[in-house]
Amino acid sequence: MSAKPQTKHLLQLRPAKTTDCAALAALSIEVWTGTYLREGVNDTFATFVLETFTPAHFAALLQDPGETLIVSQNRVGIDGYIRITEDRPSPVGGAKTEITTLYVQPRHHGRGIGQALLRAGLDHCRAKGLGAPWLSTNSENTPAIGFYHRQGFASVGETVFEIDGTGYPNTVLHYTGD
């Protein structure tokens, strides 16, 4: 009996296109709800997710020259993406370009996709002369904070992400690596 050969994930990064909008919306809903909704889904969060992560939302982003979306494409579809927003100053000063989103489907964690997307985003910032970017993540998301620290980001302060009048602390990180 011979062992079945393992197929390695072939990492293909490319700019997002309009035909990706539904996949980007579905992936965003999956990652956001899986990461932040730990105790059930209430109407406030369901409404936020369903109104925010829509194909129309992503189509509008792709038409905005200040937005860049890069996707990771596997043989079946998109398994992650990074979104970079120009001219969005950090809430604690300094950096002016935000890594607005870096999402990878949980089943694809540990395959280097997040790191490759982040490197592509950093390369994009360098190529356009945008300077070192910043980002924020929920302060309780210690796996993400640890990932960013390992990639050359430093925690520099806090901000608040607000949904329906309730604030959630977010850690602000600035890129200091390279």
Rank of each mutant, 00 (worst) to 15 (best):
T33I: 13
V92C: 07
T97D: 06
R111K: 14
T35N: 06
Y103H: 02
P143T: 11
N141V: 03
G157W: 07
T33H: 02
Q6D: 10
E98N: 02
G157K: 01
H9V: 13
A95S: 09
R14K: 14
G114M: 04
K17W: 13
E67A: 14
G40Y: 00
H109N: 05
D79V: 15
N138C: 10
A132N: 12
G80Q: 08
N74P: 12
D87N: 13
I84W: 09
T33D: 02
L117T: 05
G157D: 01
A22Q: 12
G110A: 11
G131T: 11
P133S: 08
L13N: 03
T54D: 08
T97R: 04
S139F: 00
T33L: 01
Y148N: 08
L10Q: 15
V71S: 06
V160E: 13
Y175F: 10
V71D: 04
N170Q: 14
A154Y: 00
N141H: 09
Y168A: 04
G112M: 03
C21Y: 09
F48W: 00
L10R: 15
G93V: 03
Y103G: 04
T159K: 01
T176H: 11
T101Q: 04
P5G: 10
I163Y: 01
G112C: 01
S72Q: 10
H174F: 13
H108W: 12
Q151K: 05
Q73K: 12
L27P: 02
D20K: 06
P89R: 00
A26C: 09
Q63C: 12
N170Y: 15
A120Y: 00
G80Y: 01
T7L: 13
R75Y: 05
A154C: 09
T47K: 14
T52W: 08
D20F: 04
N138K: 03
W134T: 05
Y168Q: 07
E39H: 14
R83H: 14
P143F: 06
V160G: 11
T159E: 00
H149G: 08
S90P: 03
E86S: 06
E67G: 10
T52Q: 13
G66R: 15
R119D: 11
P15E: 12
P133A: 07
